[in-house]
Write a protein that binds this DNA or RNA. Sequence first.
RNA 1: GCUCCGAUAGUGUAGUCCGGCCAAUCAUAUUGCCCUCUCGAGGCAAUGACCGGGGUUCAAAUCCCCGUCGGAGCACCA
Length: 535
Amino acid sequence: MGDNPDFRQHGDRIPGVAGGVVGRVNDLSYEEKRERLEELAPEELAEIEAGDEEDEHDLPSLPNAAEHEEIRMRCAPNPNGPWHVGHARMPAVIGTYRDRYDGWFCVRFDDTDPETKRPDLDAYDAILEDLEYLGFEPDEIYRASDRLETYYDHARELIELGGAYTCSCPGEEFSELKNAGEPCPHRDKDSETVLAEFEEMIDGEYESGELVLRVKTDIEHKNPALRDWVAFRMIDTPHPREEASEYRCWPMLDFQSGVDDHLLGITHIVRGIDLQDSAKRQRFVYDYFDWEYPEVVHWGHVQIDAYDVKVSTSTIAALIEEGELDGWDDPSAPTLSSLRRRGIRGEAIVDAMVELGTSTSDVDLAMSAVYANNRELIDDDTDRRFLVREGNQLPLGGSPPDEANPPLHPDHESRGVREIPVGDAVLLEPDDVPAREERVWLKGLGCFQYTRDTLQYTGEDIDVVRDGDVDVVHWVPARESVPVRMRTMDGDVSGRAEPAVAELEADEVVQFERVGFARVDRHEDDETVAYYAHP
RNA sequence: GCUCCGAUAGUGUAGUCCGGCCAAUCAUAUUGCCCUCUCGAGGCAAUGACCGGGGUUCAAAUCCCCGUCGGAGCACCA
């Protein structure tokens, strides 16, 4: 139409004409379409078929991936506690990219604040365990607190390049100058003085707040967030790691992370929008050193539905401290260790995180998506068992069989059947107790009518269920069942299970029929403890 | 106040760069039906979205402008 403006007045007929053609094309088989396209436009076909491979990935391609010999990424957690569900996003995404590009990723603990974000010594290993649970093994592990000398060396070099200055302005005063776009009096110091003062910082000759090293950026930059930011500051509190406890002069994230990303050969940085300006800040350092900045992907925050507690390490820690939660793996804690204890596979979480993509807007993760993934992973392998929660006891009459033999898995009869002794009374969940004179089908056992306070065995065959007149319910023998405490997100539920549950291996995941999936946690003297996963 | 981002069904996502049956993809969710000795699994179906307003154009989810809403940074936190 650009070539033939005369056609424009007939533009509204395009849908009619194109529609017919599209209709005819849609009627062709896949092979016919492919053949026809090969005749008309082989290069288009090639593009489409390349695209087909692309479509198998849930994540968008990494920017300029082809230009790098090896895709190298890092996961840079602050070890201030075990991971919550939201933390799974980073390993899920970069681990998925690593597999896709045959790349590399490391875990680098950015533990450079011994005070405000004080590292928790147990968290280093806890995080690595969480990572293993998710199914990833890092190619390398680093701790920033091992690398202080490297950061100092680069700071010295930066000072010699005239890219940094020591500054003793109180924070508030500097902030005012900065917001006005005015340099502070320390900005023009010669580099010998700066270097000497920086060495004194390293030697611990200043106290917290007395002197910082700033990167000289552009004091009039239109974005105030980028103006002369702090690279090193003094911290009086010793680092909890023995190896790092003597250091007092600590780099800020933007300096440490910027230097490390270069030294580790990181090609792609994935991080949250809270660090949107980090790349812009770090670029000033990169420019001084004449380094090339990695590609950056930013994503928004993840909210997770289904949890009452706020998903943040410090909030969870506080709730544990107050006794609101039993620990990091309490069933209602939004942590990875909790999901693991509930029998949810790390893979289910990873898949859900990958499905979220890498959009810069904030996203909500629906736990139902994780549950759906997990159900798909485990359903086929999971044996069925009966658990009756807060059961009502009902005597049996009419000489029912001594033993019931429901299958371990309805879709796999070859796995065999369970052997559940019946006895002279059963427990039913309150909602399942039939009305007077009504019938109910006890799964794997038979049909019963509720008459004169007893369940009378009627001996009818399964057709009564197929006719739709009789509800099918789960049950346990009143006497030979075993006590179970099932821990759920909404609190503990007591119940009784078929006897074999007392013999299950810890860690086995079962489906309590009509209740949901749960993981057997342990057997205590008087009860079995299970953790509920999901319906 | 200054500076950056972003906005497609309940949720997430594809499409946006390069406008053209996009009366919009897929998954999940919810509901109904079929199947099943589970409320699980499987099958089928329904529900449900381009933030608003202008502009450009024969044609706008897509490009431009203005709003609105949301997020982020302006830390000696990460």
